[in-house]
Design a protein around this nucleic acid. Structure first.
Lengths: 131, 131
DNA sequence: CGGAATCCTGCACGATACTG
DNA sequence: CAGTATCGTGCAGGATTCCG
């Protein structure tokens, strides 16, 4: 959901909506990053990369930069060779993580309901085709 | 975030994450639809269209269909001419709305913090360029 | 090690036109 | 009124290569 992040945030009549924050939650990689950082306190770039199997190195860079830019993640560079960079949640980031956590909780609890609704919907749609 | 909805939901090692639900929350139109339906109990297609200024009629169709498919929205067609279609939240949809609401609340409360973080980040980035 | 730069592709979404 | 069908396109995001 990086995509929406670029969109002009001019909202409908619905005023705020705080798209900025919702976008991060809609972004798959951001959520995973936040959850991992919530569990490990501090992580290096490559450690995160290993934890999040499937992420391209570019997306990890971009995701972390955005999270840092929004004040959710703190990035600390130790000027040594080879480079040593640490990432951790800021207090704001931790607050966000709490929300994400409870939301994931709710989502999991109702995941089955969604799956069933989807299956029955698809089944009905299929029937109409055969009609 | 309709985009991610098409993605294979094979998650990393992080197991669940209930991407299905998070995607809806990341989707701008879905959130707006849900909030409006939460306020009006029942709405017709065109009423929603007017409430959500800026949405294309195609996106409203697609968004509503997805929400219905996932069991968040109920669609009732009255077979008259001209057609009369009503949309309302299901119990599951209302539950989702509660979450969305409180999340928006939190987002609004911290929107300023994010904006400030962003500005200071951008300011620093600009400085380095001029260096 | 932790990125930045570049290229390439698919698909999300808007605009437009047509229908029962 | 409430959609569906079709086309055009911008840009998100993966793969690859190079760098301090």
């Amino acid at each position: 959901m990086r995509k929406a992040a670029a969109k002009s945030n001019v909202e409908s009549g619905c005023a705020c909506l705080a798209r900025d924050v919702l976008d991060r939650i809609g972004d798959r990689w951001s959520v995973i990053c936040i959850l991992h950082l919530g569990e490990h306190e501090v992580l290096r770039f490559t450690e995160l990369r290993r934890l999040i199997s499937g992420i391209s190195q570019r997306m990890l860079t971009v995701t972390l930069r955005d999270l840092e830019r929004d004040g959710f993640v703190a990035r600390k560079v130790k000027p040594v060779i080879p480079p040593h960079v640490e990432y951790r949640l800021t207090p704001l980031g931790r607050a966000l993580m709490e929300n994400v956590r409870s939301l994931c909780q709710w989502a999991n609890d109702h995941q089955d309901a969604v799956r069933r609704a989807r299956e029955s919907y698809d089944a009905r749609a299929l029937q109409e085709v055969s009609t």
